[in-house]
Design a binder for these strands. Structure first.
Lengths: 195, 195, 195, 195
DNA sequence: TATGAATGAGATTTCATTCAT
DNA sequence: AATGAATGAAATCTCATTCAT
């Protein structure tokens, strides 16, 4: 009937090569467009930017909401993956703070990170992606606390709250690199143990 | 054209009063509606909530954008006024942190505070309202720094950035009172001088 | 919010004169258009035929389904009213057969009579219009049976079934006047008492 | 181009068999789907029900209209064939009335019988199928009239009209078995000679 | 001045049909 | 010959804004 869309792709079922290419293109275009104009941007513009017809967008994402949800999911996956790289490259203290800064820097560019962090009820389907963003941050946090780089009395939900807030601030406030660095400095000071 | 000119004059005065009342009602309704559904909510819904016809909304605010801008302005005025009360009631240290907390608590309720802080290009018309929000915060900050309650190396733009960020986080994250308190605790620690 | 449409008009609440005029125009245009092209005809064509913009149709009938339902309702009312006239003018025997013939003749022109008789689940809201079509036919039938013009063992549901069927046949078959007369002759013979 | 021509030939035969099977499947699925949802049902749904891809449907029937026409033709053939069986099994009187009842019962299930009877301009291609439905009914009618079971003054077009009408009524009215029997009783009485 | 109906551009969604794989 | 992705015109519905009453 209606093309058993997108989740099929997610679930790993086979898609034709060109379909997969288009799906990726659409996601990329959508991320750009929604990043620039907010989620009230039109689906038609997404299609145009992706270089496909409007119907193709619909085939992959039957609803605008589905498209938005797919962007979030994709982005979350990417961010989680990048966390792994960071924690491999650096010691636990650096890993935590680097990841925090990294996400905020991302947010300054990509408006959609917002929705990702705010979760906004968009089907997170816990379990279908074992390592969720919050879990990743939790791991980095614990490691940093064990290493004495973060106050032991700070809980994960507070960290997520501050991370979210900082990302949103960075985005909407259009901070430049310097302001971001100084702002993060204050936040990080709040997280570090008192001398 | 009116039969009894005296009555006409009286009616005119009465109408102006009505108009003022309507303006206020519309602003209040708009603040509620946009707070709940974001700024993509429809003008018709604002009219309905205000109990007036759609035409009346457009008579007072020729454009949706104008309506949004008016909300911001009204809110800014209110917040600035409240700052005066706080700094009168408390010492400089308390005043700064109280005001910060006060704004974040507001943000948790009113989505529009966001736009206010983010400025979003909506006609701030600097000067037509002598004391702007940023200036108020600046004064509180300076006082708190002189009193030794805030690190002297913290600049106003950083404070505004963190304030904005925390407000946005509080709103979109739907923090409860406890989480808000703990989160602010961390931020405030970052702002206080090291022992 | 969304214009408290159509039922307002139905319920007799005041509508502006021009609005009432447009509502009537739209209904008339819709009846024509759907009669000609079936219910898959486009709302836009209805708007064009009525000489209004598409949004006006939407204001009165928020959904295509609502528009269809309104046509049915309007038509039912008209038919029921016309029954009263017939039973006043003629004796009971003539009244019944005349009404039957009258409806079939109508059906030959108006495709929508179909849906009316078939009821198709479109909100009949029993009670909000005390005398429904079936009831009217029932009254005419009873009177005709008391007068000995219709077999006493014929039940109302059979009559409605034959009436519906004949209407649909007349419509889809595009019967001419002669064929309709002869066909009704056979049906009426089946309804009359055996000599 | 094929490497082994023998296999190619064999494959060709196999493919033709597959194709025939697919054609039949599609027709069956289409009959079901259009019966349930009317002819505005989507071609994709037909494909899904048939278990083939949408492209396959269009390979066999280049146009939706062609598909509809094919259903009609297929159905007509089936109904005509079944007439032969009936007139062989029973006397002429029974054959006519049985066939009439049989078609109405069919119509109660299959929405497409409607279109068949109404002809709707869909390529009947007279002559390519020597015995048409109307002709079959005509033969049964004549036989029944010769046997004195049907009034001699009834013409074929009237019978077709009543038959069509009753089929449509049965379909759209969703008559149950009992109502259908009683309704047909009245119609048949109208067709029988007066005592 | 208030009302609320009308406008019409634009957004989302549907679906018959084409075409690369 | 089958598949199913892509197309794009058209349909439905939304909503900021205008204007007659």
């Amino acid at each position: 009937m209606t093309h058993r869309p997108d989740d099929a792709a997610e679930a790993g079922r086979r898609l034709r090569a060109d379909a997969r290419r288009n799906r990726a293109r659409i996601l990329a275009a959508a991320e750009e467009v929604f990043a620039e104009k907010g989620e009230s941007a039109s689906t038609e513009e997404v299609a145009a930017r992706a270089g496909v017809a409007i119907g193709t967008v619909f085939r992959h994402f039957p609803t605008k909401r589905d498209l938005l949800a797919a962007i979030m999911k994709e982005l979350r996956t990417r961010l989680v993956d990048e966390a792994a790289a960071l924690s491999a490259d650096a010691g636990p203290a650096a890993a935590f703070f680097d990841y925090f800064a990294f996400m905020v820097e991302r947010a300054a560019r990509v408006r959609t990170v917002l929705g990702l962090l705010a979760a906004e009820g968009m089907g997170a389907e816990p379990g279908d992606q074992i390592r969720d963003l919050e879990q990743v941050v939790g791991e980095l946090l614990e490691a940093a606390q064990r290493a004495g780089a973060v106050r032991p009395d700070v809980a994960l939900d507070e960290v997520m709250a501050i991370l979210t807030a900082t990302c949103q601030g960075a985005l909407h406030g259009a901070w430049d690199d310097d302001l971001r660095r100084r702002t993060l400095g204050i936040v990080f000071d709040g997280l570090r143990p008192r001398a």
